[in-house]
Design a binder for these strands. Structure first.
Lengths: 334, 334
DNA sequence: CTGTTAGCGCGTTCAG
DNA sequence: CTGAACGCGCTAACAG
């Protein structure tokens, strides 16, 4: 790799002159500029961003920590972040934390060592003391994504309580009365919030909130399947089920199909997230859609705002929306 | 952010001593070491990898350029790469190229400027002259992933010809005789290869290779849908269809369902890639599985090998395998 | 065992 | 308009 020195030598000028044409800062005579440019081309020179970073104090890269890019909910988020970052000349370092708080800490450190200009964190259990300390005292701009926090941290999220409410109310409106919930892992704030939305809808409609009908899942297909199996073993199987995410709904759907239970004729189902996948299962899954891509871009925007001037804490919340498809729509039993 | 100087000052030693304890190189007296460590802790100091990189000539990060992380085929690949990279202390810079050759070039340049230690490229049209030149003359270690090339470049791929052959032969074995193919974009080598496998199977079984039955798609759901619509308009609809990837198969499936054509009773379908999604559509999609995760890890291994000693060109090819599920299995018409 | 010096590739004064 | 000199944070000789 040629350096700025090589270019200077070849062009017969000093390094500072090369630097000037590179950054179009200061005056450079046209002819010498051309010589420099020619030299750059000839050597196929590219300025080292890391050397630049050392002096400019910025690496033009952001870190993105998320649980698992393999989970269909996250690529959309990542893509939003990358697209937005690129608009401003930034790149994204991708980190998979596997919902493991230790890995999150590890990555938080690594990213700082790598001097990223900002970190977007889709964290797992934010309330943990040690992590909370790290987060609030981080020298690098940080925004929480798809999470909220009582801590003084920037965040982008959608209203999970309302989303849970929407899903459940839809089921109620369809005429279902015994409505179960397959929840996310209860350490997860989003899981708690969706559950609480579920509860609110029931209470508001004077339906009993029955803990027997609430099964804790893990936000994964397998967890949804297990929860569904337990639900099927209940003395009276619920008429409808609100799953705290689409993946679990898909797991539940599989179990129902294998058990010969027709959806939505015998059991209605609604998911959450609006992952692409949900549109292509059978029957098409009704779901609560989050503006995933937009959340990704918003997170980057927030970081960017914070880089140019340290803003006061912003916690932006988007609204989810109901997408009614087939799995939750009452129709006559075939 | 505190620097090594701050630590040195606080500990009352020189920066080189701090450096020594940081890298456990050279001898340091125990008591001074302890002082240094104490200072590090107190300041919460973390060495700047970018300053280190400037001298060590390595950034401990790899670039990963792929078409679109939002496409379900790629996260698995990315995850494999990240996991493997992390084992050796590397991070991954994620770049989405949207199958756009200009963006690929752009990223190739950016990644070089960022001084990544290696680049994994899931490229689109490798034969293009300008890109070919870049690729072969890249100063940074490069490996092609999920692609092969006649160029002298390292690559990891699976045997697409064989995969296409497997899929088609399976359909033939099931007793189908008019077998259509929804291909990938024909600039893409993998698309060409799968098509050629399709052809080989037909020829080998003395079935006609009929160009009318080959529709070019774009590897996306929408492309599969469009191609399927055209296939349906044919005077005689084919008995079975081999789709060059799962996404297009899903698009085709949708169209068939909307048209009231039963799968597999009236038309059999097989996809390619083995994305998770394919298991959860209805009917479950038969497909040709690629060892996606493994390909991701293998790519990083190849890069790593090349960093420590410039190896001769390796082009590693994995074998695909057939996963027969429901969409392609002959059964009586209901 | 430890401090001093030099230099990685670059941007930025400051003279000239 | 241009070059020399300095420093970013760190590692690597080289003395002591």
């Amino acid at each position: 790799m040629p350096t700025i020195k090589d270019v200077a030598k070849l062009a017969g000028v000093s390094v500072s002159t090369v630097s000037r044409v590179l950054n179009t800062s200061g005056y450079v005579e046209k002819t010498t500029e051309e010589r420099v440019i020619a030299a750059i081309k000839q050597l196929n020179y590219m300025p080292s961003q890391i050397a630049r970073g050392l002096v400019s104090k910025q690496t033009k890269t952001f870190g993105l920590i998320l649980p698992d890019i393999t989970n269909p909910f996250f690529p959309e988020l990542a893509r939003g972040a990358e697209d937005e970052a690129r608009k401003y000349g930034y790149n994204i370092m991708l980190c998979n934390s596997d919902w493991d708080i230790e890995k999150e800490k590890k990555y938080l450190n690594i990213l700082q060592e790598k001097c990223v200009d900002g970190i977007v964190l889709v964290g797992s259990r934010l309330q943990e003391d040690k992590l909370a300390n790290m987060l609030t005292s981080l020298p690098t701009p940080l925004v929480l994504l798809d999470r909220t926090s009582s801590l003084q941290i920037h965040s982008i999220s959608t209203n999970n309580i309302y989303g849970g409410y929407l899903a459940t109310k839809h089921l109620i409106d369809q005429g279902y009365r015994t409505i179960a919930h397959i929840s996310g892992p209860q350490q997860s704030p989003s899981a708690q919030q969706r559950l609480s939305g579920y509860r609110r809808a029931l209470v508001e409609h004077k339906l009993p909130y029955d803990l027997v009908l609430v099964m804790e899942g893990d936000y994964r297909i397998s967890g949804g399947a297990v929860a569904m199996q337990r639900l099927l073993r209940l003395s009276s199987v619920p008429e409808a089920i609100f799953c705290a995410n689409d993946l679990m709904a898909i797991g539940a759907l599989e179990v129902l199909q294998e058990a010969g239970v027709k959806v939505p004729e015998e059991v209605a189902l609604i998911g959450y997230d609006g992952i692409h996948l949900s549109k292509y299962v059978y029957p098409k899954l009704s779901t609560v859609i989050q503006p995933t891509y937009k959340m990704g871009t918003a997170a980057i925007q927030l970081i960017l705002e914070n880089i140019e001037s340290s803003q006061s804490i912003k916690q932006i919340e988007f609204e989810p929306s109901l997408e009614i498809r087939e799995s939750s729509v009452r129709r006559k039993t075939v």
